[in-house]
């Protein structure tokens, strides 16, 4: 360890690089986030509690959590199919499909928002087909879910893909030799390996969905108690100059996000260990 330290310090720039990192990190990220906590601490606990549990705020958590949950579940199912097909089969246009998976990362959310709204509006390409069936998408929670499905596509696909790639064919081979049918091999041999990345992808998509704003505001209709998501409610409170209320709600959202981040990091460490030992 001691010799290690001496060997490492042969390179220059430790103080400068870490000093600059910590300074810049503090100025841009840590101090602003700390300001949020300090501002909320200005409220008494009953005031805080009353704000974050008022009927309209509770309804917004419900909308945000349920739509994000449902969208993430849809992405787990279809994300697995997309990752499977991309890793294991050969078909024309495969490279393009692989590239398209990243579009939700690169396409600005406002662009996705207006495009989805016009597709699912009652006179839009898909809305027109669903309207006679009595299904309304734009300006309903279903519309919010559609936007969050778009946003979440890459998360599940990109966490499952590398794991599927690494899985040894030998494992499946021996299962097949032992007489297992394909479906049984999948369930008993492959699926257990795929569960950790699927949960990670789910949690990433879910966390992103809870905080998402740009793609949702256009399609949601923003009706209090019905289609108002928590991030939008924060903006509404800000526009009414209710700074402490906006801050209190933001803190709750932040705590939910950090809890998910902790879960995701734990899961990823677990997956990486399994991958390395495989």
């Amino acid at each position: 360890m001691a010799s290690n330290r001496i060997r490492k310090s042969a390179l220059p720039g430790f103080r400068f690089s870490i000093g600059f990192t910590i300074l810049y990190l503090s100025l841009i990220v840590l101090i602003p986030l700390a300001g949020l906590v300090v501002k909320t601490a200005g409220l008494t606990f009953p005031q805080f509690w009353e704000t974050v549990t008022s009927q309209r705020v509770l309804a917004s958590y419900r909308v945000s959590l349920l739509t994000a949950l449902f969208a993430a579940l849809v992405n787990v199912v279809f994300g697995l199919v997309v990752a499977w097909v991309l890793v294991r089969y050969r078909f024309p246009g495969k490279k393009i499909i692989d590239g398209l998976v990243d579009i939700p990362f690169a396409l600005p959310t406002a662009v996705a928002g207006i495009a989805l709204t016009s597709i699912y509006a009652p006179n839009g390409w898909i809305g027109r087909l669903l309207d006679p069936l009595g299904i309304k998408v734009s300006y309903t929670p279903l519309g919010i879910t559609v936007a969050l499905i778009f946003i979440g596509v890459p998360f599940v696909v990109r966490t499952v893909q590398p794991v599927l790639q690494e899985l040894e064919a030998e494992m499946e081979e021996s299962a097949a030799l032992l007489g297992a049918y394909r479906w049984r091999t999948f369930r008993k041999v492959l699926l257990p390996e795929l569960v950790p990345p699927l949960i990670t992808g789910f949690a990433l998509a879910f966390a992103r969905g809870i905080g998402e704003y740009g793609s949702v505001v256009f399609i949601s209709g923003n009706m209090p108690l019905k289609t108002e998501i928590t991030p939008l409610l924060i903006i509404t409170k800000l526009e009414q100059y209710e700074y402490s209320q906006a801050t209190a709600i933001a803190l709750v959202l932040l705590i939910i996000s950090f809890a998910l981040l902790l879960l995701i990091n734990t899961l990823q460490r677990w997956t990486n260990r399994r991958l390395r030992s495989a």
Partner: peptide
């Protein structure tokens, strides 16, 4: 992992 809305709010 921070909602974009909060990323703006902190500077306000």
């Amino acid at each position: 992992s921070v909602s974009p809305v909060i990323s703006g709010l902190v500077y306000i």
